[in-house]
């Protein structure tokens, strides 16, 4: 005979797994299996009607590394991250400090900062088209008033990527501001008084008191910004389509293009596998860095 205690434990285990099973099935079908399949696909050649797909080991990766477009796209993505992440975080901090201070028209200021965050990326891109269009775009009209020559912002390799970055920063900064704003409101006001009594300048107070207290928030935002620098590519479809001559193409867009425009699944899979590796490293970084002292209770 099994004792009641064991029975109860077994009952709990069965209930637990039953509760988990719907989510686990969906996760397996749409996350774990596709991740695994990505790796497998990346090891096989691209099948054609005449030559069926065959196992080629790491050949697809080798081709990828020999493809100059891949390196250009990877470099673009690195630039995209290196520009959008620090600028949007800095802006977010400034916005939060201002939106938290006693300034006139504060609710207008807050709303203005945050509104872009809730627009679809596609809509944001449409709005910015108006700024960038060569003949009558607003940027060129303003430039014209100042005597500058018109610039084809989206149509030349030297500016296309920056134009794309600007839209991302516009979308992200207000979103990140919210997190800073919340963190700022948890800082006790006595700290500020104490700093004033000690004769610390506002700048010193900001640098020595506020910024360290905001550190966990900054890390949280940083992780989010890094993930966004991989996945925020919707506006490319409207603004540049990755051009001209791949100068504004980002990795996820290149994956999409390979898979759904060139029908080259193995190459797309190899790139996806590399991207998963980068995201995995990011996950490990987060678990190590943020393990104890984050927002996660």
């Amino acid at each position: 005979m099994t004792d009641p205690f064991t029975l109860e434990r077994r009952r709990r285990a069965i209930h637990g797994w039953l509760l988990l099973s719907p989510a686990l099935v969906m996760l397996s079908v749409f996350a774990f299996y596709p991740s695994f399949a990505t790796f497998v696909t990346s090891l096989w050649s691209r099948g054609t009607r005449r030559r069926p797909s065959e196992f080629v080991g790491f050949e697809n990766y080798q081709y990828l590394f020999e493809d100059p477009t891949f390196w250009l796209v990877a470099w673009n993505n690195l630039l995209y991250a290196a520009v959008t992440i620090p600028i949007s975080i800095t802006l977010a901090l400034a916005m939060a400090l201002w939106a938290n201070a006693k300034i006139p028209a504060r609710s207008f200021v807050r709303t203005a900062y945050f509104t872009p965050a809730i627009l679809p990326m596609i809509a944001a891109a449409n709005l910015w088209l108006f700024f960038y269009t060569p003949s009558f775009g607003i940027l060129n009209q303003i430039g014209g008033l100042l005597g500058a020559d018109p610039v084809n912002w989206l149509g030349q390799p030297s500016t296309a990527l920056w134009a794309v970055c600007a839209v991302t920063i516009w979308k992200e900064a207000g979103f990140f501001m919210i997190f800073y704003l919340a963190a700022l409101q948890t800082i006790p006001p006595d700290l500020k008084e104490a700093a004033e009594i000690e004769g610390a300048s506002r700048w010193t107070y900001l640098r020595r008191v506020v910024l360290p207290l905001l550190m966990p928030t900054t890390l949280f935002i940083l992780i989010n910004a890094m993930i966004n620098s991989v996945k925020l590519i919707d506006h490319l479809f409207i603004l540049t389509k990755g051009g001209p001559s791949d100068s504004s193409k980002l990795i996820l867009y290149y994956i999409w293009e390979n898979a759904f425009a060139y029908f080259d699944r193995p190459t797309a899979a190899a790139m996806t596998a590399l991207m998963l590796a980068v995201l995995g490293a990011l996950a490990a970084f987060q678990f190590l860095m943020l393990d104890k002292r984050t927002h996660y209770r």
Binding site: A13, P34, S35, T41, V230, I255, R265, T272
Partner: peptide
């Protein structure tokens, strides 16, 4: 129950396996 914490870590991993990145194989699925 046994195995709960292991499965939880697996689930957390999915925070980083973005559905956006898996478009190629998810399309096949």
């Amino acid at each position: 129950f046994r195995g709960r914490d292991t499965v939880f870590i697996l689930v957390l991993l999915q925070l980083f396996i973005l559905p956006e990145v898996l478009i190629v194989e998810n399309y096949r699925v």
